[in-house]
Design a protein around this nucleic acid. Sequence first.
DNA 1: ATGGCGACAGGATGTCGA
Length: 261
Amino acid sequence: MKVATWNVNSIRSRQQIVADWLASSSVDVLCLQETKVVDKDFPREPFEQLGYHLYTWGQKAYNGVAIFSKTPLEAVVAGFTPIVGEERAGAFDEQKRAICGVLEGVQIVNVYVPNGSAVGSEKYDYKLRWFELFWEYLQQLLARSPGELCICGDFNIALEDRDIYAPKKENHIMASPAERQALDKVLELGLRDAFRKFTDDGGHFSWWDYRQGGFPRNRGWRIDHHYLTASLYERASSCTIDIEPRKLPKPSDHTPVIVEF
DNA sequence: ATGGCGACAGGATGTCGA
């Protein structure tokens, strides 16, 4: 099974690029982030024509996640509330950042982690609190799921300096100690980075800033990840970043990452 | 340190992303 993750920065702006990529890449599952559109306006036709079943959870202008799957998913759940309860989820589901479903005994979780703006800001605090809730959500899923989890998405965190084109000062957003600790705590539930099973060196990125010629100068970050439970990690046969879509005119600032297991 | 680029909503320019 091939599972891809891709922050498309508006599915309506990226419709053709995503459809062309799907037609040639033949992934079984594509997890999208930053779709930036409410469900009723989601451009479904080009993807349904390619044989995909679509599960969307969007909002106006910001955020939004979706899963495309060649085979129907079971037990699709949008947001945190159905898993952790209304009281615990509070207002977090106002931002559409999580959707999950089960395929061939694998619980697939698609997330768009908050950006956090700047260390110390209100949004940064929200990001850290969001991670606390995400941890509880995953703990619940692990208790009730088929036992195998594939969590993928835009994590907006680079865990290690080799995931960044140049090491950052302490307290840079996406690389601060508190963010890394929050992600580490999630991974301690028993998850491993699929990409690092196959590749040790730096210089491999999934996001490049639109500004300052980030992509042509390869000034990127690896912030889009697949995290797998132990036996799924053992089964994984590849994890690759496809930088081709980032080279096209009017690209997303992220490019797809694909795991096969 | 700042802003740069791009999408969005709305109908100019501010907000947000990372």
